[in-house]
Amino acid sequence: MIELDINGTKRSVDAEADTPLLYVLRDHLAMNGAKFGCGLGQCGACTVMVDGEAVFSCMTPVSVLAGRKIRTIEGLGTVEQPGALQRAFIDEQAAQCGYCIAGMIMRAQALLEKNSSPSDAEIRRHMMPNLCRCGTHMRIVKAVRRAAQTMRAEADKPKSAGQT
């Protein structure tokens, strides 16, 4: 049994040490966000975050993940309450088939947590490992930019009285 911290929840998983995280998420834990795209680290459809960095879950064996913080797109928000990037992808209609999008959002999230106002060039460089085949790239870049704006605006807001 391996204990994993996924989106802040401890999950015990009965998987062999060399099992890539992707299959634990999808198969053992029935989570849809991370997608199988290549199993080679070439396309980024499986991208999740580990300790704040974007990683290919198809290449990351669960044995290295004990005690580390895993985030998937399920941890960013829901249809009812989407996170800033999810909201921005909806607002920009930044999907066609959408298969790559969860990975795109997770890679973008890792960027925005380090750089709250990336330039277009920085966004493009950062997103390089992730492939989109439908040609949604321009909208994806716009959505990341839009989310960065929202996140900055949120961060600038004075905390309301009730909040600690």
């Binding site: 989570m31 849809n32 966000g33 997608k35 199988f36 998937t72 797109i73 399920e74 960013l76 928000g77 829901t78 249809v79 989407p82 999810q86 992808f89 909806i90 209609q93 999907a95 959408g98 298969y99 999008i101 969860a102 959002i105």
Partner: peptide
């Protein structure tokens, strides 16, 4: 706005793969 996009950006079941 496309009706299929919200599920696709939140990890909902959207594909035969899911």
């Amino acid at each position: 706005q496309r009706v299929d996009i919200p599920a696709k950006v939140t990890g909902g079941a959207a594909y035969v793969q899911d």
